[in-house]
Design a protein around this nucleic acid. Structure first.
Lengths: 229, 229
DNA sequence: ATCCTAAATCACGTATACATGAATGGGTCC
DNA sequence: GGACCCATTCATGTATACGTGATTTAGGAT
């Protein structure tokens, strides 16, 4: 049976391309072009784009070509705040209903992250780093929590693409192993604290420090380019 | 300028009808029928239905007429859990950034709830009771948090429709006033505790007690009907 | 060279057509 | 009388057509 409509194929492909930063924020997503690529009509492309738009990965404005979303700094901070809140709940659930095989699953995933990082596949490494949190969410056993977290983690990739320093690989495997260790100990307080630490590290890699952000002015940037450029 | 496409009109109307329980869970939503009512084509109706489906208010299955969603008990519990988590964050933000005029806004809203309840307009009263929490979320100043909460609160109306006792008006105005009072005192711990209490009360009205749910068996129900029916 | 304007092109918004898979009703057989 | 099967009807899945607003390009004036 044909499980997924061809609209889903376009949706999945676009989503992944955006998350892996193959499609940079701001990139135009023309319906015709995408439809031609997948061999589907604009009708189905629009459905995929609308879905991505609801998830905050694509921006759709009336009568304008859709683009990969460019989250503002304010949105970025909002996203991270919600993420903190959701991940805390997830960790709480995990320590409450921990089962040893969860540790195996997580361990296996981190190994994949490490492998991707070691072979220099930064796109996959970033994606897998994000997916680690989605695996956590699924294991926590609340589908809605997992859906929201998945959405929020995807948008963090966008934030990293816009505000993160270039070439900063996620390099989070060590931190992920710490999280697993804390969960295995089933110590809720410690797990939450370690997760919070990790999330702050992720946020620090993705966002400029607050005072930096406020200091940056267009004239400063232009000044840099007028002396040496 | 024509701000909202006509698809939005259908979306808004359907959403409100579902939330006010004018459209009961399980009701069929035929594209032709809806399109004819609003004077739009199926294309636009589909867009509205897809959006509602992503919010969990409508169920869409391939090649089947869309229906108003019927949340399962498991989903219902998941929804309430996420709601707890989000509302806690909202209350935390509110006590941190409290401004006196927020109290006025909230007070005015509760007055509306009360007015609707007193004139016997239970549909509006329920909707306004839910919207109280959405107003809180907006005042908290995190748009994403507000969006998720709005989605979750809408789905609570569905849960109430499916599992709540009939004719149970929400009657939450007193509890809402307690929340406002706690926020005004800017005591985060007390506010969170009062909000948790309120949410548990809401949940108790919407869901059967856990042991009840497990005890209910089809044979029990049939037994009732074979003696007296 | 720059800016403004007008025409042409492009991309989206929406309706509609046609194909296909579900639902329904009538008729037949046991 | 009830259950099964086929034909019909209905509702959705998808492509396409056409109108309109956005965008780009070419040309001319300053």
């Amino acid at each position: 049976m044909e499980i997924s409509s061809r609209s889903d194929i376009a949706y999945q492909a676009l989503r992944r391309a955006i998350i892996e930063q193959a499609l940079a924020p701001g990139t135009k997503l023309r319906e015709d072009e995408i439809g031609a690529h997948f061999g589907i009509s604009r009708t189905l492309v629009r459905a995929a784009l609308m879905r991505l738009s609801q998830e905050g990965l694509v921006e759709i404005k009336r009568k304008r070509t859709a683009t990969v979303a460019i989250p503002s700094l304010d949105e970025a901070r909002e996203i991270f705040e919600v993420r903190h809140c959701l991940e805390q709940q997830i960790v709480q659930r995990l320590t409450a209903h921990w089962r040893p095989e969860m540790g195996e699953t997580l361990e296996a995933h981190v190994n994949e992250e490490e492998a991707a990082a070691q072979r220099g596949d930064t796109a996959s490494a970033s994606r897998l780093a994000g997916e680690f949190h989605i695996v956590l969410a699924r294991l926590a056993g609340n589908a809605l929590l997992a859906r929201y977290l998945s959405e929020v983690v995807s948008r963090c990739s966008l934030i990293l693409a816009v505000y993160g320093r270039p070439h900063v690989a996620e390099c989070a495997t060590a931190e992920h192993r710490n999280v697993i260790a804390a969960l295995r100990a089933r110590d809720a307080a410690a797990s939450i604290s370690i997760m919070n630490e990790h999330l702050h590290a992720v946020e620090a890699r993705a966002l400029p420090r607050p005072q930096e952000a406020e200091d940056v002015r267009i004239s400063d940037i232009l000044a840099r380019y007028s002396t040496a450029g």
